[in-house]
Computed example of a mutant assay.
Amino acid sequence: MDGSPGYQVALIIAVGTVAMLLLSVAIIMFMVFYQKKMIQEQMKRQQLELDYQQKMMEAALESQENERRRVAGDLHDSIGGMLSTIRVGLSTLARQIPDPESIEQPKQMLDDTIASVRQISRDLMPSTLEKFGLVQAVREICDRFQATSLLPVVFHEEGDVPALDPKKELMIFRIIQELINNAIKHSQATSIQVSIYSTQNLRIEVEDDGVGFEIEVQRNVTHSGKGLGLFNIENRVRLLNAHLDFEPHRKKGSKITLTIPHEALV
């Protein structure tokens, strides 16, 4: 009975079916493993590309800061020193000529030039940031923008800002500096408020009562090569693992909020 042709055929069919099932399972497992491997390789490549882009952005921004530091030093030490020497020479000359009042106007113009050079040097490399930290540096730059633009720039803070990594602190300062500068130049505002809140996250708000703006238009301006302000802001935001929220269509003015997790600040 067991050796009958029908039994043998059935056994062959059963064995063949099991073999086909095992082969199918093996093929499916291979495809799943292969796809998983491909996805992992793709994710690895994307991560490498992101890491490369981040390093390139860091290098570009660091190069900018090094150049600012160099120019600030040249302005302060070389040009500032030469102008101060000329100022001393004018003062000496004033005591030797019959009409010292005749050089009062050139002396005043020279004093204004020296003050401008010092101001530009401080804007390029804020010594207050290195000495006293972010809050005091932002307070100072608000006062400075207000003095030069004759536009009220109000500073407000809540909570204690923790000690920050110096490079990240500088990036945050540059973002705030650029946002205030944009508001003064483009918003037609009559007042600007800069607020720093330190709670679960570090939150910074720059708000104005001007005409608002179209964020996509600003991005198009940047992409056309006419401006790098927004491009540099968004690059710094990405490097900080932060979030930038635009509210350009309020009833009046605009509000930009920078939110940075505390764990990204150390």
Rank of each mutant, 00 (worst) to 15 (best):
R68D: 09
D209G: 11
Q177G: 03
M20D: 07
Y34A: 11
Q188Y: 07
N220G: 15
A94D: 03
Q136R: 11
V138S: 01
L151T: 15
L21S: 05
R139I: 03
H249A: 14
G229H: 11
L50R: 14
A147L: 15
M43L: 14
E49M: 14
V71A: 06
I120H: 10
D51W: 00
T113I: 03
Q218I: 15
E205C: 03
N182G: 01
G253K: 10
R250Q: 13
M29I: 01
I79N: 06
D112K: 10
E49P: 07
I256V: 11
K44G: 07
K168P: 00
C142G: 06
R139L: 05
Q42L: 14
E216W: 15
Q46P: 04
S121N: 09
Y7L: 15
G73W: 08
L93M: 13
S78E: 10
L202T: 00
G227H: 06
V153M: 10
R87I: 03
L258R: 01
V138Q: 00
M38C: 14
I260F: 01
L230C: 09
M29V: 02
L258S: 02
I97F: 09
V217D: 12
R45V: 14
L48Q: 12
G253C: 11
D123Q: 13
A60W: 05
L265W: 01
S254V: 01
I86Y: 13
A183V: 02
I114E: 08
Q146E: 15
D208A: 07
P248Q: 11
I103S: 03
Q105Y: 02
V9Q: 13
L202K: 00
L50N: 12
G212L: 09
L258A: 02
M43E: 12
A19V: 04
T190E: 14
L129F: 07
D165S: 10
Q188D: 07
T259D: 07
E207F: 01
V211K: 10
E130G: 13
L179A: 04
G80W: 08
G225Q: 05
L164M: 03
N220Y: 15
A60F: 06
F30Y: 06
C142Y: 04
T190F: 12
D77F: 12
K168L: 00
H249K: 11
D2Y: 06
E101I: 05
P5Y: 12
M20H: 08
L90E: 09
A147M: 15
P166W: 14
E62W: 10
L83R: 10
D160H: 07
E140C: 06
D123I: 07
N182T: 03
L61F: 06
Y34Q: 14
